[in-house]
Amino acid sequence: MAFVENSVGAYATMYAFADSEGDRPTTPTPASRAKRFGRIVPVTIMVLCGLFFTLPLLAMARFSLQNVPMIHLGWSTLFKKWSFSGITRAFGEQGFRDGLKLSSVLAVGTVVLTLGLLLPTALWVHLRVPKARAFIEFLTVLPYVIPPIALVAGIRVIKPHARWFLNSDLSLIPFYVVLALPFTFRALDAGIRAIDVKTLVDASRGLGAGWVTTMRRALIPNLRTAIISSAFLTATVVLGEFTIAQVLLKRTLPQFMAEYQSREGQGGMGLALLAIVATTTLLAILTLATRKRGQAQPISRF
């Protein structure tokens, strides 16, 4: 089950990396031989990476979606007896529906709380204490550096004293906000640095807009891409987190998936595969949707 969580984490990291690096123009190599060499190497690496990612997925797909006994899963049975029945059976479980509902609520709650806290913070740091930016960035990476198990150990310590809080399913939200920090802050920060926030704020205030109007009309529309990115990344983290939910005995979707897999190996693996495909699709859509940076959407008010 840890596989699901890790791969989600890996996608999120890849995305955050791509976002912070930006699209740098590749420098053309002078000699043609160097050019050919320069093409072979990255293509080889890409193919190898592709295999590294797709082979396990293929194996998962065969195990979970083919109604063939495992010892017979060879080349000869590659196209035999594919079926989604394992997954659809999982959909029928009450635990699945409850888990999906809870995880969706948690995702929305975490996104709202994260944006509500981080957007003003990131803007404030950028405008008022730019020197502290590196420090804040370091702070936000901490949840990524400190293993979640440390957080879990902490929870165990406070558990007897904070039952009133931890009993609520929503008590996961603050933990998820912390876990998502490395991704969300970076996504917002990259967006903020891509526009001239200081000038936009000054221009807006000089035209008579208070802080609320400035946020609503001058900043949020221009940070749309960054806001969407960080929302998606947050949701991805929430939909992949298992450990804390397990410790606090919350029936979230990943928790159900782990439990289901111990019961129904094939169906559980099918769900895990579905989760990976769904997350990848979401991130792909996000990447495509946010690529057209700087091309404003037509607004038909004039």
Binding site: I195, D196, T199, L200, D202, A203, S204, R217, A218, P221, N222, R224, G294, A296, Q297, I299, F302
Partner: peptide, 11 residues
Amino acid sequence: FQSYSLFPNLT
């Protein structure tokens, strides 16, 4: 302003 300061999201 010295730098371009139009709101990029507005016509």
